[in-house]
């Protein structure tokens, strides 16, 4: 039994991103942590409201924080881990928003009279921050059984781990936390200049072509730099970069496919967890199996 830490999976991990959830939970287990799903969690809302007068985007997140507050007291830990970039971004921003803006919190309390008030002591963390600051990269290094020697990885952060500034998990223009992780996993890191550029996000619903174009640019630059895979942490980025290659290929015949993986999958593989129950390669549009064959 490892140490218990609260985990907020978010809706996407429960369905299309099972590969992210299982590889996260299992890799944490190897490191001696038990990620316990936050009981009764609700949707984070995916995007955060930007209008000054909007509180509706905050409610669900503060509810989740209150749930974490209660559950945290039970397990004696105030860290709430998220691995989906969107969930992390929303929870963190909601926390910062209401802590900065107490009036807003008061208004929110009026909406939620059945629950305790949020006290503001939940530490919302992305799994990467947890690895770097709490677990320690040394510990990660210790657990590497199959170094990913020779695998060229383009780390891809997307937007939500780095922007806006107040939620950034690393330098927003030149982050290094994924690079550090992949180096420890033994992989060769590609200095990928578009690592913090947007994938097109929710436009994938109604403006697929735009996302196809973004995917074309992001993937072909990575390819041009010699990468074998792009590794990300966001299920939406993953979907866009993976599935929308279809459109990219339709539009640009010279386009070459490239598999997309979650950083946690690479961790799992390096830790020797190669079962499809953990990796779920069936969830990938472009299968990474061939590229990763050596370590499976």
């Amino acid at each position: 039994m490892g140490k218990k830490v609260m985990f907020y999976p978010g809706c996407t991990l429960k369905g299309v991103a099972k590969n992210l959830e299982d590889s996260t939970v299992e890799s944490a287990r190897v490191l001696g942590y038990d990620l316990v799903e936050l009981p009764g969690w609700t949707c984070c809302g995916a995007v955060y409201g930007l209008a000054q007068d909007s509180v509706k985007f905050t409610i669900a997140n503060v509810r989740n924080l209150i749930k974490a507050q209660n559950f945290g007291k039970e397990i004696g830990d105030n860290r709430l881990l998220a691995v989906c970039s969107m969930c992390y971004n929303n929870l963190k921003r909601a926390h910062i928003d209401v802590m900065k803006n107490r009036d807003k919190l008061k208004t929110l309390d009026l909406f939620m009279d059945e629950e305790a008030n949020y006290e503001g002591n939940i530490n919302v963390m992305h799994y990467l921050q947890f690895l770097k600051n709490d677990v320690g990269m040394d510990k990660v290094a210790e657990m590497v059984k199959k170094p990913l020697k020779g695998l060229k990885v383009a780390p891809y952060y997307g937007c939500l781990l780095l922007r806006p500034d107040e939620v950034a998990i690393d330098d927003r223009e030149d982050p290094h936390i994924l690079e550090e992780l992949f180096e420890i996993l033994g992989a060769e890191v590609v200095d990928y200049p578009l690592k913090n550029e947007c994938c097109g996000s929710y436009h994938t619903v109604d403006k697929k072509e735009i996302v196809g174009e973004r995917t074309y640019k992001l993937v072909s630059v990575a390819k041009g730099m010699g990468a074998d895979v792009i590794a990300t942490s966001c299920p939406l980025c993953f979907f866009n970069l993976d599935k929308r290659q279809e459109i990219a290929k339709q539009k640009h015949s010279e386009f070459e496919h490239m598999p997309i993986v979650y950083f946690t999958q690479l961790m799992a593989i390096a830790f020797g967890l190669t079962s499809q129950d953990v990796l779920h390669f069936d969830k990938h549009y472009i299968s990474p199996e061939e590229v990763l064959q050596k370590w499976l």
Binding site: G10, V47, Y202, V205
Partner: peptide, 23 residues
């Protein structure tokens, strides 16, 4: 956007649809 006209609804990650409709 009209939610009823969204294609490949089955495949899309929930966060894509939620965020799209919210915006």
């Amino acid at each position: 956007v009209d939610p009823y006209k969204v294609e490949d609804r089955e495949e899309l990650p929930p966060i894509a649809m939620v965020s799209n409709f919210r915006k």
